[in-house]
Design a protein around this nucleic acid. Structure first.
Length: 424
RNA sequence: GUGGUCGUAGCUCAGCUGGCAGAGCGCCGGGAUGUGGCCCCGGAGGUCGCGGGUUCGAGCCCCGUCGGUCACCCCA
């Protein structure tokens, strides 16, 4: 592309987040951070790229996300790296590397990359907040993790979100089930959808998740994983369910819920919004991954976590009509007609008190500055003209209420602001 | 990867069977000399996504291409 026509844009499927939208993001992340902290999770940062094997091993080399959608590249040193396609594997890699004492609880906020065709609610770079709890297989941890997600989503104001729950079994009981399911699918291969009639054998579980009418019909009476769980898994699942009942978190049992990553064992769950039309209705999901730490070279360590998509959750809030909160307006806007030191002093001293103060620049006309003051949403305009500058004072003009304006010295203004926390 | 749809001012869009590129909003300036919103006047701002083709003439028709958007698939 020649320089004359070079007009850069954010790459396909990526987006800039500007005010006021960025304010919503900040609030969203803050709310999650506070809630995660009350549950004892500490924030963890990991690099957004990893040795590609970190993702390939745990998520599954033949999974959609790793096999077809991962951003992979070779760096200048010949290393095979990949941009993070989901949050869990990196955290587990960090756990294996640093071996913190267990139980270990981490929360994160991160971009996540998948090479997909963008559409409503789906991007090549999206963002998630999430948690991972490592080192315990207690079903109470499952319940806590799920209730953290649930409480967070409803705390945002979401009402049309439902929780779907399933158990994927473990290394002991799942193979038996998958074999039985595969055998059954083999007998009906011709009844499956085009894609799965040829590929069901690679991962029979995925067929259960297929939304095509043929597959749904052909698997209607397929064996349910719930009925082939081993005793330990069945007991674990029951305790998760009763725990959720106890604390009043409603869920629907969905034996067809199969998530896209191979590392899941036992508890899996997904939060879907009925306010989001179409297929992109999952706002969050997660599950237990009792074998993942070992797969990444660590000691046998159980774990469970979830991720919530920031863009999806905000989309769901919009769809439910939850009004976004606006950033706070400045408390004062300084209108300066003298291009003088007093205006700079007022702005600096008020900001030093922690007050949000704005002003105009470039020596604009008073009319222009007053318009800017009004548009800023400030409650008060502090006017400094030749008169005020000469006496080190400001004229306080209230913009939102009908009261006479008054003039005070800058020293008085700052003193008043210091004691009352407001101006005017 | 497949398909639908749309690309005209910063934003939202109009532009007739092909004939001088427009509006609203926003922005800047002004409306008796220091006062915002409402109103009035003026101004800046465009290679009509890009490249070919047809034509006396293309924003409009044809082909290609890039991008946005929506859906399939998959997922947050």
């Amino acid at each position: 592309m020649s320089d004359e026509t070079f007009a850069p844009r954010a790459p396909t499927g990526t987006h800039d987040v500007l005010p006021p939208e960025s304010w919503r993001w900040q609030r969203f992340i803050d709310a999650f951070a506070r809630r995660a902290d009350t549950f004892g999770f500490g924030m963890v940062h990991t690099p957004i790229f990893e040795d590609a094997r970190v993702f390939r091993r745990g998520i599954g080399a033949d999974s959609e996300v790793v096999g077809k959608e991962m951003y992979e590249f070779e760096d200048r040193g010949g290393r095979q790296l990949a941009l993070r396609p989901e949050g869990t594997a990196s955290i587990v890699r960090a756990f294996v590397q640093h071996r913190p004492s267990t139980p270990w609880r981490a929360w994160y906020v991160t971009p996540s990359f998948r090479y997909e065709r963008p559409q409503a609610g789906r991007f090549r770079q999206h963002h998630q907040v999430g948690v991972e709890a490592l080192g315990s297989q207690d079903p109470d941890v499952d319940v806590e993790v799920i209730s953290l997600a649930w409480g967070f989503l409803s705390g945002l104001g979401l009402r049309q979100v439902s929780l779907q729950l399933n158990s994927m079994g473990c290394a002991v009981c799942r193979p038996t089930y998958v074999e039985a399911l595969g055998a059954m699918l083999a007998r009906r291969a011709s009844a499956l959808c085009d894609e799965h009639s040829a590929r069901y054998a690679a991962n029979p579980l995925r067929v259960l998740d297929c939304k095509k009418a043929q597959c749904i019909a052909a698997t209607e009476d397929a064996p349910k994983i719930a009925s082939s769980l081993c005793d330990e898994c069945a007991q674990h699942h029951e305790r998760v369910e009763s725990g959720l009942d106890e604390i009043g978190v409603a869920f629907v049992e969905n034996p067809r819920l199969v998530r896209g990553f191979d590392y899941y064992t036992r508890t899996t769950f997904e939060f879907t919004s009925s306010a989001l039309e179409g297929a992109q209705n999952a706002v969050g999901g997660g599950g237990r991954y009792d074998g993942l730490v070992e797969m990444l070279g660590g000691p046998a360590t159980p774990g469970i976590g979830f991720g919530v998509g920031i863009e999806r959750a905000l989309l769901a809030l919009d769809a439910e009509g939850v009004a976004p909160q606006l950033p706070p307006a400045p408390v004062a806007f300084v209108v300066d007609l003298t291009d003088g030191e007093p205006a700079r002093r007022v702005v600096a001293e008020l900001r030093e008190l922690g007050l949000k103060v704005e002003r105009a620049y470039d020596g604009r006309s008073m009319k222009s500055q007053m318009k800017a003051a009004d548009r800023s949403g400030a409650a008060v305009a502090l006017i400094i003209g030749a008169q005020e500058a000469a006496t080190q004072s400001v004229t306080i003009r209230m913009l939102r209420e009908d009261v006479p304006q008054r003039t005070v010295t800058i020293t008085e203004l700052v003193q008043e602001a210091r004691t009352t926390g407001v101006i005017g």
